[in-house]
Amino acid sequence: MTIEFDSNPKFADYAHPEVLVSTEWLAANLGREGLVVVESDEDVLLYETGHIATSVKIDWHTDLNDPVTRDYVSDEAFAQLLSSKGISRDTTVVLYGDKSNWWSSYALWVFKLFGHEDVRLLDGGRDKWIAEGRELTKEEPTITLADYPVVKRNDSQYRAFRDDILKHFGNPMIDVRSTEEYTGERTHMPAYPDEGALRGGHIPSAKSVPWSRAVGEDHAFKSRAELEAIYLGEAGLKPGDNVIAYCRIGERSSHTWFALNFLLGFTNVRNYDGSWTEWGSLVGVPIVKGIEPGVAPAVA
C-alpha cells in the first residue's frame, strides 16, 4: 500500500526523488491511511508547543539512543517504539523537524539502519511549513498501535566506526561542523565549562563543508546543480567515491549523508556517528589543526 511519490519537478533532478515530499504534498496527503508523519527535533519540547496535525513525536535522544551503552536502541526496542507510534514495516513515514531537518535526518538515518523501506523527509522541515503559514496543532493524535517486526539492525551499509576511519585514509571524508570546530579554535575562558572532547581539530584529510550549506534560506535542499557545485566542485568528490561524513555526534552529518546518498546518488556513503566526541578523545589517533585538511596517514 505504498503511497504515490511527490512528482514535484524540483525533486526529479535528484538521484532518488522518492525520498522527499514538499509541504504542498504533505498538506494534501495528511490523514491518508498507511501514512505516519513523525516530528523529530533538537528541542525535546518543541512538538508539544504545536505540530503538524496527525504527527507523532520521536525524540533522537530519549527514543533512539540506548540509555546505557553509547549506541542506538536494540532491535527489540526499535520495534516496540515504532509499534507504539502506529508504524508498521510497510508504513510510509514522513519525517520533519526543526533546524532545516537536522535532527529528523538523523532519525531517518536510524530508520535506514533498521532497513525501513519507505521513509521520506519533508523538504524544508518545520521551518518551511511554518513560514508558509500552514497550521500547527497541540492536539495529540489517537494512535492505533501497530505491530512492527523485530528487525536486525544492519550497520554495515551506512554507518562507520572508528576502526573504519583508520582503514579509510586515502578516501574522501567530509567534516560538516562549523569552521571554528574544524580548525580546533576554542573560546576557552576561565569558569566556562568545556565541550565534550579532549582535543580540537579535525581528522587528517577531511574537507570542511558545514552541513547547512546543503540548504537554502527556506531550509529546503538546494538544487542538484547547486549541491554538485559544492560537493563535487569545491570538495572534490567524484562519482563512485567511498565517502565518510562526521560531525560531533553524527547528527549534522546525517543531513550531509542524506544529501550525498539520496540527492547526489553516491552509493557508498557512511556516517561516522562516534564523530568528534569520540575521535577528539581517542588516545593516539592523528589530528590536524587549522584550516588545511592535512595529509592522510598511510593505512596500517
Binding site: D43, V44, L45, L46, E48, T49, D98
Partner: peptide, 9 residues
C-alpha cells in the same frame, strides 16, 4: 527564542 522551549524552561 520561542523555538527553544526546553532552554526557555
Amino acid at each position: 527564542p520561542a523555538e527553544a522551549p526546553t532552554t526557555r524552561g
